[in-house]
């Protein structure tokens, strides 16, 4: 049955929807965690430490964190693979364009593919910057996110990359959340307004919540 689901275009869409929701839930938690930076270095550095001890004493140090990381990697790979394969199918299905072109669909809908690519590249940079410290400007210190974040957002390119990616995320979620609901068959005429509102609200909330951090550093609120 797994085979038939993956071979079907509807199955791949289902994979996209489920993996998208997994990532969306993570992003909400991630955004809430980020906001701790506004309460000082103690608060956020302690939070970073807690992320490694959560699930204890049942789970060993960092086990829960690695579990989250594994789930996320699986979700990202599943989401990107199905997106790539579905896009290939879509482009093959409409090889010749109309001579008379009409502007169509919303901005968020039209930018799902490019937005997704931007987000994929951003994730690579983001991990190399603030998780491994490989491309971090200044001296990266493990478990000291407060100073690390300030270092990143003290560079112009750090701010540009981050804000562009977060705006792309907002558009992606705005169309993606509602679309996932349709793919999973929970949409309907009566529920449509609620689903659209929740999708847009999530998009706005995530964009504002994430953008708050670089803006906080730029304005000197966090220093």
């Amino acid at each position: 049955m797994t085979r038939t689901i993956w071979d079907s275009s509807l199955g791949k869409k289902t994979v996209m929807a489920v993996s998208g929701i997994v990532m969306l839930l993570y992003l909400v938690a991630h955004m809430i965690g980020n906001l701790k930076i506004f309460f000082g270095p103690e608060e956020i550095n302690h939070y970073a430490h807690w992320l490694r001890t959560m699930g204890g004493p049942v789970l060993h140090y960092e086990w829960a964190l690695w579990l989250v990381r594994i789930v996320l990697v699986v979700a990202v790979v599943a989401h990107a693979t199905s997106a790539y394969q579905l896009s290939r199918r879509d482009i093959r299905a409409r090889p010749s364009k109309y001579v008379h072109k009409k502007p169509s669909a919303s901005y968020a809908t039209r930018t799902m593919r490019w937005g997704g690519i931007i987000l994929g590249l951003f994730i690579v940079w983001h991990i190399l910057d603030l998780t491994t410290g490989t491309v971090h400007p200044g001296g990266y210190e493990h478990l000291h996110p407060y100073q690390n974040i300030i270092d990143t957002f003290s560079t112009w390119y750090g701010n540009v990359i981050y804000i562009v990616a977060v705006v792309a995320l907002g558009f992606h979620v705005q169309h993606g959340f509602w679309s996932a609901a349709q793919t999973l068959g929970v949409g309907s005429r009566s529920r449509d307004r609620v689903l659209k509102t929740v999708g847009t609200a999530l998009a706005v909330l995530l964009t504002l919540g994430f953008v708050a951090v670089p803006v906080g550093v730029m304005t000197g609120l966090v220093s």
Binding site: S8, S9, R89, D90, I91, A93, R94, M112, Q182
Partner: peptide, 20 residues
């Protein structure tokens, strides 16, 4: 199941919910 499989076999694309 059969109609969706046939639809895929015919080379139609997938839905991106543009609403067109």
């Amino acid at each position: 199941l059969d109609m969706v499989a046939q639809m895929d076999d015919e080379g139609f694309g997938g839905c991106t919910l543009t609403g067109e």
